[in-house]
Write a protein that binds this DNA or RNA. Sequence first.
DNA 1: ACTCTACCGGAGGCGCACCTCCGCTTCAAC
DNA 2: GTTGAAGCGGAGGTGCGCCTCCGGTAGAGT
Lengths: 196, 196
Amino acid sequence: MTTQSFPVTELVAARRPTRKDAARNYDALLAAAREAFAEHGAEASLEDIARRAGVGIGTLYRNFPTRRQLFETVYADEVNALCQLAVEVAEREPWEALTVWLDRFAGYMVTKRAVREALDGESEVFVACRESMYAGGGPLFARAQEAGVVRGDMEFGDLLRMVAGIMATAFEDEAQRDRVLGIALDGVRMRKDPGA
Amino acid sequence: MTTQSFPVTELVAARRPTRKDAARNYDALLAAAREAFAEHGAEASLEDIARRAGVGIGTLYRNFPTRRQLFETVYADEVNALCQLAVEVAEREPWEALTVWLDRFAGYMVTKRAVREALDGESEVFVACRESMYAGGGPLFARAQEAGVVRGDMEFGDLLRMVAGIMATAFEDEAQRDRVLGIALDGVRMRKDPGA
DNA sequence: ACTCTACCGGAGGCGCACCTCCGCTTCAAC
DNA sequence: GTTGAAGCGGAGGTGCGCCTCCGGTAGAGT
């Protein structure tokens, strides 16, 4: 198993308690929060999350004194997983590696959008997430650009936002979403024709 | 002034009261709701909306017995304006007409996304909005396709969702948003080169 | 000017989510 | 097995948004 360290990697593990029951509760809370955020967005009730996790509301507040800290932990966890994936796909063809990774990125964004929006863009954790995302996915993008399969007048951040935006929208069905994403990625791909 | 009737056009005017003070309050409520939804999304407080409009909460409930009705009216109003614009730009060059219209569409979507999401896709008003949108913007799209400036394997609905998704995302600045939108629209545009 | 009716506003009851606080429980070190 | 510290859970206070209801007000018809 390939495991590499990114800015978020430490942050994720840092707060997890050591005592056995406490660690179990912590994990249950994180899982419940992921589920609740996916279902109800950032407005999910904290009491509902505690209930799902099978712990008291007090336990939730001990582990995550603020709503924000819960958001941050859930989000950082996902970003870390994405970074690990980037390492795994790094050996494939440039364009394929990039799209495989984007595919997974897109999947996360569907449910994590609400959490991201609720996070202040300047918080320590959010900055670490951004840096990790660039450290993980950036090389895939750069390689594709160097290989001449991605247009030069675009930045990695542009691509992330484009995909995130499209994934956050409601479509009639999966086919339509894929079609639209494909068309947009056609704009990303280097054109074979020279002029206008 | 070009004024044309679309499915939403009647719905918009239907509920407006006739008495002078009532009509004034109705308009103030709509304006306040637009503002509040843009600022806080679909979770905006109804009491805050009433306060902004300078009317009592009772007046809000008399005009819009349910939160949904307020959403619907605000949204239908915007759609109607978009339809009127489509009529106005119909004489320009196909690609230009389409992009001018999309530009305005994009502007609306930034603030109206929350409202749209809160609306049930099957409600009478929402269906009328969808039909109006297609009746207004569809011809611009069809004309651009016939003129050979838009790829053939795309539907109007695909384009709307693509633009809506991109506009709903947070960007670093306006320049980045424009750049990303431009790249995505490059995917929409007919390619000059023949093969892959 | 008068009337009568439609409309106005906001006080207040209700319910839900947030968060604190503390007596009880469980872990783990010895 | 004992013990003390770390952890647990949920009762309950607080605040806020939703919605109803009705005494007062202001427009429209005569």
